[in-house]
């Protein structure tokens, strides 16, 4: 791990010194075990970059803060980040030529408080970056995630009333902080429907009905574009099992439109973002 950190810093230094990139987005040290996104501009400051078992945050969405950069943005990418990059490119929120991808194979990350592997990493299907301009470290063994839809199947086995009760309890907890939306690389609308207050799509009261409207609308909106990075679930302060919802929609998409994973490349369009004459009608 520390070898990779040294190599990452060395790579970063070269990229900054040569002027290939304007700045590098990676992970830096927090006060405790936690790491936190950092933006390194100067070659002398590359030691701020860390690579350890606690680098949890996905970073690709920060490129949206600078959509017309003077120089390329150096972006550290693991498997999940590289899928997020594909997501943003496909959604026209990022140009591939605006980023320089520093690939980091990743064996999964730990919770800085409990020291255990986090759920999103246990469920990860792509530990190696799908695309990179330079690789730091050797590729790691892909393990796949055969239980991808197991949670969804368990939910589907319940009656409608039982499912309602389950989700009602969950959404009674929601505090509507919108962390799930803001961290999500598929939530990249210029203006979220939630914030279109004059139209009034989304009421501001915190109650079961409004919270569920928010949760379901977001789930549907990212339904076929969710890259399964699991960040929404990780950042939710009240612990909503959001991947159950996201994977339900992905499972439906898989069943109706054939095997599909979002953000694997920039060519295959999300099934709901395109149409074919022989598409199933059930989903309409």
């Amino acid at each position: 791990m520390s070898d990779m950190q040294a190599k990452l810093r060395e790579t970063a230094k070269k990229l900054l010194e040569s002027g290939e990139v304007g700045y590098i987005i990676g992970w830096g040290k927090g006060r405790t075990n936690k790491t936190s996104p950092v933006f390194v501009k100067e070659p002398a400051k590359v030691d701020e970059l860390v690579w350890n078992e606690y680098c949890l945050n996905t970073l690709a969405k920060y490129t949206m803060d600078n959509m017309y950069p003077e120089k390329k943005i150096g972006l550290c990418v693991r498997g999940c980040d590289s899928r997020a990059v594909n997501r943003l490119i496909q959604d026209n929120q990022l140009k591939r030529e605006n980023v320089y991808l520093i690939g980091l194979p990743c064996e999964g990350k730990k919770d800085p408080v409990t020291g255990e592997m986090v759920k999103k990493c246990i469920e990860c299907m792509h530990h190696n970056p799908l695309e990179a301009d330079v690789m730091v470290g050797e590729p790691v063994q892909e393990k796949g995630y055969p239980d991808r839809f197991k949670d969804v199947e368990a939910m589907e086995a319940l009656s409608a009333d039982e499912r309602y009760e389950f989700w009602a309890k969950q959404y009674d907890k929601c505090i509507r902080c919108y962390a799930c939306r803001n961290v999500c690389p598929a939530c990249n609308c210029r203006e979220c429907y939630v914030d279109q207050y004059r139209v009034g799509w989304q009421g501001k009261q915190n109650n079961r009905a409004e919270n569920q409207v928010y949760g379901l609308t977001r789930a549907y909106h990212i339904g076929d574009r969710c890259i399964e990075c699991g960040e929404c679930e990780r950042v939710c302060p009240v612990g909503l099992p959001l991947m159950k919802l996201n994977r339900k929609l992905l499972k439906d998409a898989n069943e109706l439109f054939g095997e599909y994973e979002a953000g694997m490349n920039t060519e295959v369009k999300p099934p709901l973002g395109t149409y074919k004459l022989d598409d199933h009608e059930e989903y309409m």
């Binding site: 996104p37 902080c177 919108y178 950042v235």
Partner: peptide
Amino acid sequence: AQKCIGCGTCTYV
């Protein structure tokens, strides 16, 4: 502020 994602977690907790 660069790393802030603009959610309301801090304000609501």
